[in-house]
């Protein structure tokens, strides 16, 4: 699609994930009882990257395998009957489970909030965490449920018809966040638009 324009590139994504790792540690006062669960597909990779940074930053943080897992929410979604059937992602918990842990859900884009709603349901079938927090790379607004992220990589004001696409090295071969208008809508010259978007969003990003 010609109208897709990048709003985050690889170095920015890397810095954002480092910041999120430190925020998570600060909020949790260390890495004790911490479990990061990524929501497949891209959330899983993001969770892993945040966990790697967390282990590097915090001497007491346990090995990666005890810190990070994945949580597939497909079977808890409320829109299954509106779409063609989906393949399932993998759910894998650290060996200790999630009981009495602080679980940080990690996803790429926070939009309607329905995926997170499904994740909370899926999580409650797996155990009883002490607290659940939410970290996302991009918050693009337009929530349909009373859900808010605790750690946001970048707030990205969008129109509902626009689409935000997160690309990650592990899945797509490169790191980038792209925003594109409604299909084939003529974008008013991509260059100026690109300058505007990061400026508007950065202020909110750090929260």
């Amino acid at each position: 699609m010609a109208s897709a324009r990048p709003v985050l590139e690889a170095p920015e994504i890397s810095r954002v994930l480092t910041r999120i790792a430190h925020e998570v540690l600060e909020r949790n006062r260390g890495a004790d009882d911490l479990v990061l669960l990524g929501i497949p597909t891209r959330g899983t990779h993001l969770a892993r990257r945040v966990a790697e940074r967390l282990v590097a930053a915090e001497p007491g943080a346990g090995p990666l395998e005890q810190l990070v897992g994945s949580l597939d929410v497909t079977m808890h979604r409320d829109d299954l009957r509106r779409n063609p059937v989906r393949a399932l992602g993998r759910t894998s918990l650290p060996p200790g489970g999630v009981d009495d842990c602080v679980v940080v859900l990690v996803d790429d884009v926070l939009f309607s909030g329905r995926t997170v709603r499904a994740a909370l349901d899926a999580l409650s079938d797996l155990g009883r965490p002490r607290a659940v927090r939410l970290a996302v790379l991009v918050d693009r607004g337009h929530r349909q449920l009373p859900i808010r992220a605790d750690h946001v990589g970048k707030n990205l004001p969008t129109a509902a018809e626009e689409s935000v696409r997160v690309m990650l090295e592990e899945v797509d071969g490169r790191d980038a966040v792209l925003i594109s208008g409604p299909d084939d809508a003529p974008e008013p010259a991509p260059e100026p638009a690109r300058e505007q978007a990061p400026g508007a969003a950065d202020e909110e990003g750090a929260r």
Binding site: M75, L88, L126
Partner: peptide, 16 residues
């Protein structure tokens, strides 16, 4: 394979 993994859990029921 994923369904089998859910059947190893304490709560085996899914709302799907």
């Amino acid at each position: 394979e994923e369904m089998a993994a859910t059947q190893a859990r304490e709560i085996k029921k899914l709302p799907t």
